[in-house]
């Protein structure tokens, strides 16, 4: 069935309103995007939503009890709760460096979980 959906692009803060015409997973037309990233984004929004997951991980002996982390690439939206569970069970030892890998290949997504700041030991 042919459907039309309007999506607000979040590839950048500009927030283009993109209209996608699609038949199930088949994309017929994409309109209103100011750049190619917008077209890619709109396509993904129809077929499978993916997002970066930023969260925190517990730290032993750190200057702070938590270190902020993120996935190195977008992971499927429906995996967020599972991903949070997995990251929530992890504890790491300070000091940490920005970019340091905390969990490799999270839930077989191909994305690593990395520290997003330097965190000195206590």
């Amino acid at each position: 069935m042919l459907e039309k959906k309007t999506i607000t692009c979040v590839a950048c803060p500009k927030g283009c309103e993109i209209t996608v015409e699609h038949d199930g997973d088949e994309i017929i037309d994409i309109m209103g995007n100011a750049c190619p990233q917008g077209a890619d984004y709109a396509k993904e929004e129809i077929i499978a939503k993916t997002r970066i997951l930023p969260t925190t991980v517990r730290v032993k002996n750190g200057a702070l009890p938590l270190c902020p982390v993120k996935t190195t690439k977008q992971i499927p939206l429906e995996l967020m709760d599972q991903a949070m569970n997995k990251i929530g069970k992890k504890e790491v030892e300070a000091p940490l460096k920005v970019g340091q890998v905390i969990i490799k290949n999270l839930l077989d997504t191909g994305a690593d979980v990395v520290a997003t700041r330097d965190l000195p030991a206590n």
Binding site: I52, P54, P68, K70, V98, T116, R117, D118
Partner: peptide, 10 residues
């Protein structure tokens, strides 16, 4: 490029 707050600050 897209960064988190702590990365931007760093």
């Amino acid at each position: 490029e897209e960064l988190t707050g702590p990365e931007y600050s760093q």
